[in-house]
């Protein structure tokens, strides 16, 4: 956005984006009152709309849609590490050692199910 003559065009786009953002804010509130049948689906729809709104802000207001390669590179790595932080942490939460159950060989051993049950109760 360095050329002066394109500024009015750019602002026209931004005003349109602004209206879109307001519309989607209303939509996201309205949609949150609808039950899509499953809790995760409700969350998914809400986050999808939020992501789209964030995309609009980043792409047009922060003019990332036509930014220099350097900034894409920096943000690309940042995004990757952010995803790594979030998912590896969540993953290691979901993945904890259990006695039996997880291991097919042990599963056949007598009493393994009982042990598994106890372990489950501990958690």
């Amino acid at each position: 956005m360095s050329d002066n003559h394109s500024v009015p065009d750019f602002m026209r786009t931004c005003r349109f984006v602004f209206i879109l953002l307001i519309v989607f804010t209303v939509i996201t509130v309205a949609v949150s009152k609808v039950d899509f049948g499953h809790h995760f689906l409700n969350i998914g729809v809400g986050l999808l709309i939020a992501t789209f709104k964030a995309f609009l802000v980043a792409a047009y207001f922060m003019h990332l849609i036509s930014e220099k390669k350097l900034i894409y590179t920096v943000l690309g790595f940042t995004g990757f590490f952010f995803v790594g932080l979030m998912f590896l942490t969540l993953f290691s939460y979901a993945d904890f050692p259990t006695l039996g159950g997880e291991q097919p060989e042990v599963a056949h051993v007598e009493g393994a199910a009982e042990t598994h049950h106890e372990a489950g109760a501990d958690h």
Binding site: F81, L85, L88, S92, D95, F96
Partner: peptide, 21 residues
């Protein structure tokens, strides 16, 4: 630099970490 962001949990083997992770 790149890899150092995805090795951190090797400080946490004793925290009860599953086999996969």
């Amino acid at each position: 630099g790149f890899l150092s962001f995805i090795v951190w949990a090797h400080h946490m083997y004793l925290t009860g970490m599953g086999v996969t992770i």
